[in-house]
């Protein structure tokens, strides 16, 4: 552990997993949707459901969706702020299969029609993992620029993506592949050391067999 993970972080309490981690899950989800959120359905699982209210997990998730970071002192008032911005919020319960006790399913719809389903887990400290995007597995922490490509399970897509990245001098720090079934829907999750240029992402979106491209930028 690094020094400033021990003396720090600066955060809004009370809990690094149930508050700070929840802000981070909301933050990553909001960035992935990449447009103002018009509707957020928030389904809490396990310990998030049991102790979430007392830990402000609800307000923390909304704060993150609004783009606040874990040390933002507006977190306690996030629900009112979201309403002012026209975000429709619904909370509910869910029992997710094989999920970490601190998990949430976020179903987001954007102002311009994009939609996104995300499962986020808060692993302790304020470390998180995004474990699923639109029903397909994914595993990433939000600590790196991350590219998520949904595509048909056909030969060649991995090579297209990785050669594009090498062409743009982007180094891959981790890469995962998942698929529903042979020849069905597949997803690639690439955590990178550098940011990926916007035109490269636009280019990817136009490729045949690529269904959806989502990019999480640290900027």
């Amino acid at each position: 552990m690094q020094l400033f993970d021990i003396i720090g972080p600066i955060m809004v309490g009370p809990s690094s997993s149930h508050t700070a981690g929840a802000v981070k899950i909301g933050y990553v989800a909001g960035k992935l949707l990449d447009e103002p959120i018009s509707e957020a359905i928030i389904l809490l699982h396990g310990s998030f459901l049991a102790t979430g209210k007392g830990h402000g997990t609800d307000r923390a998730l909304i704060a993150g969706l609004l783009g606040m970071e874990p040390d933002d002192s507006r977190i306690p008032n996030s629900i009112e702020i979201a309403k002012d911005r026209g975000m429709d919020i619904q909370f509910g319960e869910i029992s997710l299969k094989d999920a970490h006790p601190n998990s949430v399913l976020l179903k987001l719809t954007g102002k311009y029609g994009r939609s996104l389903d995300i499962i986020g887990e808060s692993l302790g400290g304020s470390i998180i993992n995004i474990s699923s995007i639109d029903g397909l597995s994914a595993n990433f922490s939000g600590d790196y620029p991350t590219l998520i490509v949904h595509n048909m399970d056909q030969p060649g897509h991995v090579a297209e993506v990785t050669s594009m990245l090498s062409h743009k001098s982007v180094n891959i720090s981790s890469m995962q592949l998942y698929r529903e079934s042979r020849g069905g829907n597949a997803v690639m999750v690439l955590e990178c050391d550098q940011e990926i240029p916007t035109q490269a992402i636009e280019w990817l979106k136009k490729l045949e067999g690529v269904e959806k491209v989502t990019y999480y930028s640290l900027k």
């Binding site: 021990i6 720090g8 040390d71 002192s73």
Partner: peptide
């Protein structure tokens, strides 16, 4: 009470 603190 959800104020800003330093985890330490």
């Amino acid at each position: 009470c959800m104020k800003r603190i330093v985890a330490a």
